[in-house]
Amino acid sequence: MKRYTMAQFEAGERLKAHKKVFQGLDPTKPLSEFSFCVLDTELTGLRRRHEIISIGAVRIEHLALKPLDRFYTEVCPKAWTKTGTLIHRISPQQCQDAPKIGKVLPELIAYLGTSLLIGHNIALDLQFLQKACKKHLGHPLVHPCIDTLRLARVYEESRWESYYDRFTLRVSYQLQELAQAYGLPCFPAHNAASDALQTAYLFVYLVHKLRETHPLVTLEELYRCGRGWRWYF
């Protein structure tokens, strides 16, 4: 039988309580009434055996970014790869001194609260977070999620429909390239804290731009606008 620390047990109980909250979610409420947490993880690699080496998050309230309300931690993995240093610029020594994922998760769950999650290609982040939560907390994350990559595709398609002669179909959906294309503030890539902040700017920008062509007041309308997004309960 798996043994949990008190912090892990309490985090698992919090996730169970969150599930009831999200089951009673009212999608007809205005977007401005929801709290969002923009989430990003950095990994030792993309295979199932690879691990999380850092987690970053930033909060959005009333559709306004709260840049000072942030969460960031490096994580000590079981095994190190050169990818962590070459891509993420995190040294083995930094990770060796960092807490293990089992200690980090209760702090992350407390920070997320009952906020909805936002991420760029967030399914990848959730793949590793869900695995860690099930192992160390006994329960999965249950937060509904919104993917800014899908949201960007909807926005680009709306531009093509109206102005097909002005735009190229060769659009890059990489986070930093979208930020440059839309004239948003740009932050260093491959860092969980700055990527979360970059994604937050992108989300707020896209919601405001899509409102020019879509009825986009409630959470339900946002979901319909990007039909096909995955929701996790």
Rank of each mutant, 00 (worst) to 15 (best):
S158C: 11
L169I: 03
V21D: 04
F71Q: 06
L105I: 13
V171I: 10
D26W: 02
H143G: 03
D26L: 08
T83G: 02
G138E: 01
E13R: 15
L206A: 08
V142F: 12
G56P: 05
H18Y: 05
F9R: 15
A192Y: 07
L151K: 02
V217G: 05
L169N: 04
L117V: 00
F187Q: 01
L222P: 05
S158W: 09
G113E: 10
L210G: 07
K78E: 14
H139D: 14
R89L: 08
H18W: 02
H190E: 05
F36D: 04
P30K: 12
V38Q: 06
R48E: 15
I60N: 01
L151S: 03
P188I: 02
P30Q: 10
P92F: 11
G56N: 08
R227N: 06
Y111M: 00
K82A: 15
E107T: 14
F128E: 11
I118R: 03
T148A: 12
T5I: 06
Y223I: 07
A152L: 12
L105N: 11
L112I: 12
A181H: 14
E107C: 15
G226S: 12
R48V: 10
S91D: 06
C133G: 06
R47A: 13
T81I: 10
E107W: 14
Y205Q: 01
S115R: 05
Y155F: 10
A132Y: 05
L151I: 08
Y4H: 09
L63G: 05
S162W: 01
R150I: 14
S32A: 15
E107V: 12
D26T: 05
H139R: 14
A57H: 04
A189M: 09
W160Y: 13
Y173A: 06
V204F: 08
L39Y: 01
Y205M: 03
